[in-house]
Design a protein around this nucleic acid. Structure first.
Lengths: 336, 336
DNA sequence: ATGAAAGCGCTAACAC
DNA sequence: GTGTTAGCGCTTTCAT
């Protein structure tokens, strides 16, 4: 293995000079820098990560705890994880992948051992036991998602409350008077992940403000359950013309069912989805949607973690504003 | 930070004894062990990962390189990554997440710096430039997927050739005479990822052996492209009654289109999908399928990596046999 | 069955 | 602008 000492010898300088060339923590003459860099190239030197972590007390690793199985849509989880990794690399950090089922023990292990300099938590629950543990470690931490009590925490999430409202506004603006929210499964509302409830709250409040009649039905997302939910909604409130869908799995069945029932989108029925752009774009017709800004959440989580690593101790809750893109699935409400 | 020295003092032993209690590399009296373990608990001691890596020359970290965007279905990538992480933890290893776009530089970086003890590569291409670099590092390596030349390599993958054959066999056994493979997009066949080509080869060979007429059409997976592909197949070979689908995105559109066209599955048309069980189960009707054994691939990749870390230098190509599960989407070919 | 102590390769004072 | 050197916390000989 090539060590810093060998590089130093080859370059005819001391090892600390090599170290400083690498860390740019003090000024180096142009001449010396070139010799050192040449030696590094020649020998194919890579600083030993463990030695560096020991001496500097920084691992340059950010831990990311992802759900094994959760209420979240898998591609969204993946996109966040990739965004975190990519953004971390831009700061010279690597990402250690932990699963949520490691729980508090995992948090203690990676921060206690100095394996990671910071921890990013995904799939945060309303009352998440990892949070107090994480705060106890004093390690920089960022949550993707909102717990019930955000005091002293740094969080990043989509503003789901405003999202529910934005969907209603769009449908109301188009003249729809009866709207329905096809939501996540009941289990999601019972489990305490928050985002579904926040969307529902925003949906209902804005519907009331705009004088719309609103119904809400949880949905498992299978073809059968979607069929049942749709049938019930149309039975109880046949005048429903606007649908908000917050359940990626229910989108394809819903479109298929509407087609079979002879309803034409968007002439007879309008749909606004809350889903990744990719899903909205590959549907037919392409869906008007509020996108899940997975990449933005991931990038911002890393930025917040870096800020904390650089000494910023302010807590902050960053709620990304919903962005609604009008596509082909929504149009003016049918007249009478 | 709690160090091994503090634990040693508290337990009234030397630090080497504490180390040996942890590593179980030499026998310790029951009495001493208890005192040490108590001290560890008391103080909340976690060995410093960097110090350990430096002294032992092992980081206990496995690097996993995943595609940012690829031909693979995202949930499959995710399931493999989670399986790798879970299995790695069972061996006391952590997983470092790298993106494929870091390329050969990423491989050199993590193995050159001793950050990772082994590397697992996903989304391996037929002629993957990461492979020679990885072999050059001498670091244990496992590929998930098959490159063109597997000499000296350790690989884990589904046997896609046999998979194509198994799908044909199932349809042939049910009496179907004309079968079609709705495949991945053309880009996937052009790109050199191999799995699509291997499936096609197996499909065609077995069809010939069983005396079936077979057609193959790439498919983008959008609703429109699936409609086009289906229409063309039924136009050119209207007697086609058996479909093999290797494209998760095309499944929902295909089912929807068949429904619209009045074809009933499985009475008129049989479908065999190559997809994760989860996808097969949430379709309506539930699909007869060959599952993508994502978890098994992930677990085995880690096992192979561990074997190499323990000195096993044999190269091996592990092709997991396809498992076809009969569900509701396949049945006897319609008579005349 | 246990201890003492020599490093592992690097960073960051402290010196000049 | 550069060199010297004392650790960082652990593992692992070498001793007993």
């Amino acid at each position: 293995m090539v060590t810093i000492a060998e590089v130093a010898r080859q370059a005819g300088v001391s090892s600390s000079t090599v170290s400083y060339v690498l860390s740019r923590k003090r000024s180096i003459s142009e001449d010396t820098r070139r010799k050192v860099e040449a030696a590094i190239q020649d020998l194919g030197y890579h600083p030993h990560a463990g030695a560096r972590a020991l001496a500097s007390n920084r691992s340059d690793i950010i831990a990311l705890m992802v759900p094994l199985r959760s209420d979240m849509f898998v591609p969204v989880i993946m996109e966040i994880a990739m965004a975190v990794t990519t953004q971390a690399r831009e700061f010279g950090k690597d990402v250690l992948l932990l699963t949520k089922d490691e729980g508090t023990g995992g948090v203690r292990r990676v921060s206690g051992s100095g394996l990671a300099d910071a921890v990013i938590l995904m799939d945060v629950e309303l009352d998440d036991d990892r949070v107090p543990v994480l705060q106890g470690t004093g390690s920089p931490a960022v949550l993707i998602g909102l717990p019930a009590d955000t005091a002293g925490l740094t969080c990043v999430d989509l503003d789901f409350d405003a999202t529910g409202g934005a969907c209603v506004d769009h449908l109301a603006d188009l003249g729809h008077r009866d709207v329905a929210l096809i939501g996540e499964s009941e289990a999601v509302y019972r489990r305490h992940t928050g985002f579904a409830a926040r969307t529902l709250a925003g949906f209902q409040r804005r519907a009331a403000e705009r004088g719309l009649r609103a119904v809400h039905r949880p949905c498992e997302g299978t073809y059968e359950s979607t069929a049942g939910v749709l049938a019930r909604i149309l039975e109880e409130r046949p005048t429903t013309t606007g649908f908000v869908v917050q359940n990626e799995a229910a989108i394809a069945p819903l479109l298929s069912l509407l087609r079979l029932s002879g309803r034409v989108v968007p002439e007879d029925t309008s749909i606004v989805a809350i889903c990744p752009d990719q899903v909205a774009l590959q549907s037919s017709p392409r869906l008007t949607s509020v996108s899940i800004p997975a990449e933005e959440m991931g990038r911002n989580a890393v930025r917040q973690a870096m800020a904390q690593l650089q000494g910023d101790r302010r807590s902050s809750v960053m709620l990304l504003p919903p962005r609604l893109t009008v596509r082909e699935s929504s149009g003016a409400a049918p007249t009478a």
